[in-house]
Design a protein around this nucleic acid. Sequence first.
DNA 1: GGGGCGGCTGAGAACACGCTGAGAGTGGCG
DNA 2: CGCCACTCTCAGCGTGTTCTCAGCCGCCCC
Lengths: 225, 225
Amino acid sequence: MRLLVVEDEVRLAHAVQRGLRAEGFAVDLTHDGVTGLQMAREGGYDAVLLDIMLPGLSGYRVVQALRAEQNWVPILLLSAKDGEYDQADGLDVGADDYLTKPFSYVVLLARLRALVRRGAPERPAVLAAGDLRLDPAAHAVARGEAAITLTAREFALLEYLMRRRGEVVSKTELLERVWDAHAAPEANVVEVYLGYLRRKVDVPFGRHALTTIRGAGYRLEADGG
Amino acid sequence: MRLLVVEDEVRLAHAVQRGLRAEGFAVDLTHDGVTGLQMAREGGYDAVLLDIMLPGLSGYRVVQALRAEQNWVPILLLSAKDGEYDQADGLDVGADDYLTKPFSYVVLLARLRALVRRGAPERPAVLAAGDLRLDPAAHAVARGEAAITLTAREFALLEYLMRRRGEVVSKTELLERVWDAHAAPEANVVEVYLGYLRRKVDVPFGRHALTTIRGAGYRLEADGG
DNA sequence: GGGGCGGCTGAGAACACGCTGAGAGTGGCG
DNA sequence: CGCCACTCTCAGCGTGTTCTCAGCCGCCCC
């Protein structure tokens, strides 16, 4: 039973490693996201323990990267209680479970065993609005039977809107969340990409899932338009 | 955190109920679709676990019914691997996530938590006065079944009046709160916009939700006029 | 009944907003 | 190195929205 632990707090990492080894696991350890991702990629692990706050590459991104590569290794996220990343995000990008620090060793062990026992993980959640469906992990979008190909940015934008389906989302919020947190207030990109999205998910189907609320932002209709 | 479990396999249902209670959820249980729908309707649940294959009324139809009634409680569908209903169908009618039986308990828990946290988008945060409804998050207004489109300013004005429904609000206050805190005392704009609003939310319906209190201001009738 | 004041409304001008096509810059890949 | 896909900027355009203004209406009080 091989485990990979990616955790930058050295003392915690070693404590966990020692404990898990005592339980009979073979434990590999690394302290940053980039190495962690590479090691996980090479496969052979029955589960990965992944801290969210990591130097180099956040755990969040590591999960995202692995799932995008169709790598479904069970992942248990470790999140600091007050971290800037929410656990929900982690699960949303395809982690299987999470633990909030500080956690008890017993709980860690129980969760880990359950995770490993379960083996091949299920597919992660799919977002839906009417007949419009988006699978965050598979990076796939479809309207009814028809598959839709989106670029990375288009996909991220649609994903964010689908998570907030039915609500108005302002251009500034989209800029911050889909583009960059410190983005310049150049909201035109958003308009441009909304145009792109419409031409791919609405126009060919004669629908209008993407509504402009003038002066407020955009809304993805909960029923798919 | 209240959950509703609708599942006809009694042993599975009880196992799930016991497990979730141990996690601190308050779990109600029922074994058929009709009762499940009624219980979900009465509301108060943070999420619903819904089997697809049910006696009486399929889980599929339960979702459909709830969504048709604008009930946005998060729903996690449980589908038998070889069921005649496809998961996609469930998502199409408005479920939020699905799990294929057999599922691991950890996965169920993680999904459930993600669902609850991402949550019933606090839909009850809808303002209502009689049959006049305003949803700040969706930026949507409706009188009964009929949707009403408002411009940004009209919407802001109506929202403010609805938050103070039943009270008299002066033109100066509206100027300060809906327009600009440092607005010039040009109160005519308010009169103009009240006219606009009346023509959209009152006149077409033969109602008078917006009352002028001469010399004092305006009042939005609590019963919608 | 008349005057005055407060509120209503139609018209129109100025403006802001959002959409789009063109095109430049960038990075990956053969 | 060249090609291609993608991202993003820019400027122009059409249109919806906001606000002002002037005239009118009607309530209220004398």
